[in-house]
Design a protein around this nucleic acid. Structure first.
Lengths: 343, 343
DNA sequence: GGATCGGCTGACAACGGTGTCATCCTGCGT
DNA sequence: ACGCAGGATGACACCGTTGTCAGCCGATCC
């Protein structure tokens, strides 16, 4: 089956190519009646302008790009990205934009993909995830002048626009909640330390613990996988009484790690929540399905995606855009947290 | 920053545009030395040929498309798709192909996306997921002549090439395993009934149960969400003794439902595996993290993605391709299955 | 010294749109 | 009857490639 061109439409509708272009792009130069007729023909022939020709002639490609760094196989389990992508797509398809998704094995490849997309003229703009401190992508994208929106904290996104949540506030809420329950020995199993938002959370955790007089508020770095979280959990729970004893509450930087932590605790014979309280950052349906269900920092991840996409499209359209914060994660108390057992 | 064109490369290298095109595309007409020099210049200027111009001139776009139907918000939790996409990407990026991902709210939109991609000349080929019986996409893609590979059972993919697993064989393995443990009352919480692979599994389940003399082998349809699975589980476990009593083993069509089923059983006071055995189809890390860990039908989902992508690229290259089966899911026994309690 | 050959040039036609421009219709008001 | 405006035309340049083709140059072979 051959694809129709505007010439076909023009012939069929008995007008000129120019008129068709005017009609399809909603610009003046044709009467309402003619426009109507042209659109009807285009519709009947299932016509859609060749995007390559259109882009070549200076119009937009109507595509935005997103790369994901894939630590061997974290991604399959991590609900975060799927929800984020769902949100992004929701906004993009509403505006007839498509998403070019690329998984990158490493940092260099990721950088390369963005550069290639730019020089191949493939995308109108890009989204940037998992920003780390001193991320080379930020500088490169600024230099290239390619519209870009960072899904991450603004302090590492340079002059690029960013969309993120106020992680500090959420961290404070979680720790204050645990402290109010009576916990004095709180530890955290953190995400990948190089990521900018991990650094923010780590600082916030240390800060609020200091303020509340919680000594020894340690963060053990992990990488979002269940395995690493289980290791970290065992290490923390095995801490000798001399060092203040094992923590009575644990905070995990994502839900997958919290699930693994819960299992690890159970295997060590530590009862949750009687002997150990657990809080997960991010709240996928799994958290509700466990026994006990996990107390979690809930946020609408899809909404970040929507907001990021919307901001990017505005930037592409040439509008002035500013960095924004979405609604911060808020605590949803469930069965995995309780006052510490008084010994 | 402006993007270099082949004319820039030609000028810089002191050759003609034609020579540059030859050199970049690895075709004869230039000497090895000149080719070397041209490539060096292109590399230095970070040159990449504009994909729009290239595609317009008849070359490939080096993009393949994939749409995902999104029942309100199943997707965020379903590890299947992320793993599949990871596999697809793995093969695609190795061959410098990109993935255009599109989530579709409904069937009509999904159909529309494929048609648009075709007529806009955006993709060289497409992948098709979640095929249902009489899926209109199959007929349309055949008609359009757009290279396509179905990730699903061959019997609904018409003349399109397909990549899938032998679900019947896996189903037989699972049921025989349960029967060998001594189970006589086995039920199944199935996926969306309209999907072709669900139909195959349902038939296989009924068939093997009949063969093994397991009467009353019911399949309760669900939609892959934890909520639906919990409902189905409660219904099955509440079955009156008159109807043969509640099943002693339950088979779930995906891991998310199995997790929800485990929780639902526990809430009803039904011990797993003492009073109820549970088997999950598909084995994400969550299955291992639960207590008890879930017996699951394990398969390498990423490998399907790789194979589908590879087949599609071959089809795009004009090679003759045939439908293939990947390795079938095989049973991984864990703590959630045991012989039924003899009453 | 003439034929041959590979390497390369320079020019040009696609590809399917966007955008511009002079020009020709039409119907309208005066 | 005349002028005029807006609708529509046809022709063309342009975007950055791919691909083709005649022709030129220098080296090699007989």
């Amino acid at each position: 089956m051959k694809r129709p061109t505007i010439a076909d439409i023009a012939r069929e509708a008995g007008v000129s190519k120019g008129a068709v272009s005017y009609a399809l792009n909603g610009r003046p130069g044709v009467s309402a009646a003619t426009r109507e007729r042209i659109l009807a023909v285009a519709d009947r022939l299932q016509f859609h302008a060749d995007s390559n020709a259109r882009a070549l002639a200076g119009a937009k490609t109507r595509v935005v790009g997103l790369t994901l760094r894939r630590p061997p196989s974290t991604l399959g389990v991590e609900p975060f990205f799927m929800e984020l992508i769902s949100g992004i797509e929701l906004e993009l398809s509403r505006r007839s934009y498509a998403l070019l998704l690329q998984m990158a094995p490493g940092r260099d490849e990721e950088l390369g993909f963005y550069r290639r997309w730019f020089s191949e003229g493939r995308v109108d703009g890009v989204l940037v995830c998992d920003v780390h401190v001193g991320d080379p992508r930020v500088g490169m994208l600024q230099e290239l002048g390619l519209p870009a929106v960072v899904i991450g904290p603004p302090d590492v996104s340079g002059t690029l626009t960013s969309v993120w949540s106020d992680d500090e506030r959420s961290m404070v809420e979680a720790v204050e909640y645990l402290a109010a329950l009576g916990h004095r020995r709180i530890a955290r199993v953190g995400g990948i330390p190089q990521l900018a938002h991990t650094a923010i959370r780590t600082a916030a955790f240390a800060g609020v613990c200091a303020r509340l007089g919680i000594a020894d508020a340690v963060t053990v770095p992990a990488d979002y996988t269940g395995e690493a979280a289980a290791r970290a959990t065992r290490k923390l729970l095995g801490r000798p009484a001399g060092a203040g004893g094992p923590p009575t509450a644990l905070l995990y930087d994502n839900d997958v790690m919290a699930v693994a932590g819960l299992t690890a605790a159970r295997e060590l014979g530590v009862a949750v929540p009687a002997e150990l309280s657990i809080v997960a950052w991010d709240d996928s349906p799994i958290c509700r399905l466990l026994h006990p269900p996990l107390t979690a920092l809930t946020r609408d991840i899809g909404a970040y995606g929507v907001q990021a996409a919307r901001t990017l499209l505005a930037a592409i359209a040439g509008e002035a855009v500013t960095s924004t914060h979405g609604a911060p994660a808020h605590l949803t108390p469930r069965g995995s947290t309780a006052p510490p057992r008084t010994s």
